[in-house]
Design a protein around this nucleic acid. Structure first.
Lengths: 230, 230
DNA sequence: GCAAATCCTTAAGATTTCTTTAAGACCCGG
DNA sequence: CCGGGTCTTAAAGAAATCTTAAGGATTTGC
């Protein structure tokens, strides 16, 4: 359940956005100007804010600058056509995205969803130093989170370690013994079958068709590898 | 889907670029300095990098020079007006393009698209330390992958080992007995015919016409060799 | 601490892929 | 044109991987 703040002085805009964002997963908060917005954000655990640029008392840009002094939650600016100067200024001052009026409902939903996912799952959305990416598979080693085409995938610790090993050494082939040694940090006694079972489980989670894997490939007589590129 | 790295120490610049380059075909990575940039590039399959020239820890020029030691992926430098000297230096050291701040969104999109197209069309095949090449045949020992004129070829473990032996010792003739001894690590008992069968299979996979082999030649009464050069 | 849920391992049979064998055809040099 | 070396083909045999299920270990939540 995500908390979303909608901030605009025009009640009609607020109403429209509330309808567009009607979703069991969203709890919607309102504010009529920047000052109210900051109060709401201060009192509640807001996950994303939609701020109109043109507002009385305190405008969207000013609000966002104040907000950025203490938080980096996603801010989507609402702009009217032709306010390009404000838009660029806003982006340079830390906004994450913008939507131009009049709104396209699907676009609003998509951008909100996208920013939330970025913020929640990837820890403020940065695909940076600790994130491995191969095709549609993303592994964030800081957050210990794996996503497949944007959808979060839940892996067990062992599965996670195996996937990490393979992703850190993309295209390199590891024999089951080698995988066992490096993940369990122990000598592989007899049961390399264990590795096969975990590979199977991994494939069930990150492959569309485990029988025709896109990512975790087997090289006969050699071992497994995570394939990057074509 | 292309992976693009945005590297700038100013978060606002990064945010702005991220929005300009928002595209379903791009996956955007961030780094705050050259050191991080190299890490991200090392861990992921980045297709294009936008590097700010002025950065702490490691500047854009230095980063690019390091990068060029191992990759030729497109680099677009981000320069402030007036940094013309750096710009020229950067282009001479291997940058592919540059963009001057403040950015024009359309220009950013166009240059990125153009560089990506150029890079993708030219093919980016880089050959690392563990790759053997003879004619159109490439053997990557890390990935256990063999390609013929760019097309991947699937070999069995034994076939692979034989090919590796022959490629590692190009032009050198090995008798079937010797091949058996070195690949099987066992004394050749009776069945050197086995080697002939594997050679046949290899030829079917990497020769256009197995009856008139280009690569795996036979020397009568002596054995086989992988021929380099014409 | 205890119960429940989750996860890891083991095992065995099924399946796929690879290797070897064998027999005959073919090719080269003398 | 004859003999030994090489090639080809098919099919049986061997090996590796896959799959599934279930018991035991570990972790989690209360």
């Amino acid at each position: 359940m995500y908390n979303i703040l909608i901030c605009d002085d025009e009640r009609d805009i607020v109403s429209a956005l509330k309808i567009y964002l009607k979703d069991d997963n969203y709890r919607l908060f309102e504010a009529a100007n920047g000052k109210e917005a900051l109060e709401v954000i201060g009192k509640n655990d807001i996950h994303l804010a939609l701020l109109d640029i043109m507002m009385p008392v305190m405008d969207g840009i000013e609000t966002m600058v104040k907000l950025r002094e203490q938080s980096n939650l996603p801010v989507i600016l609402l702009t009217a056509k032709g306010e390009d100067a404000d838009k660029v200024l806003g982006l340079n001052l830390g906004a994450d995205d913008y939507i131009t009026k009049p709104f396209n409902p699907a676009e609003v939903q998509a951008r909100v969803k996208s920013q939330l996912r970025r913020y929640m799952q990837l820890g403020s959305g940065r695909i940076g130093g600790d994130t491995l990416v191969i095709g549609g598979v993303e592994l964030d080693d800081k957050a210990k989170v794996v996503t497949l085409d944007g959808e979060s995938v839940s892996l067990t610790p062992t599965e996670y370690e195996i996937l990490k090993l393979l992703m850190q050494n993309a295209n390199q082939v590891f024999s089951p013994k080698e995988i066992y040694a490096r993940v369990w940090k122990d000598a592989p006694l007899g049961s390399e079958n264990t590795v096969a079972v975990h590979i199977r489980h991994l494939r069930e989670k990150i492959e569309i068709d485990p029988a025709a894997p896109r990512y975790i490939k087997v090289v006969w007589g050699q071992g497994y590898k995570m394939e990057r590129g074509k």
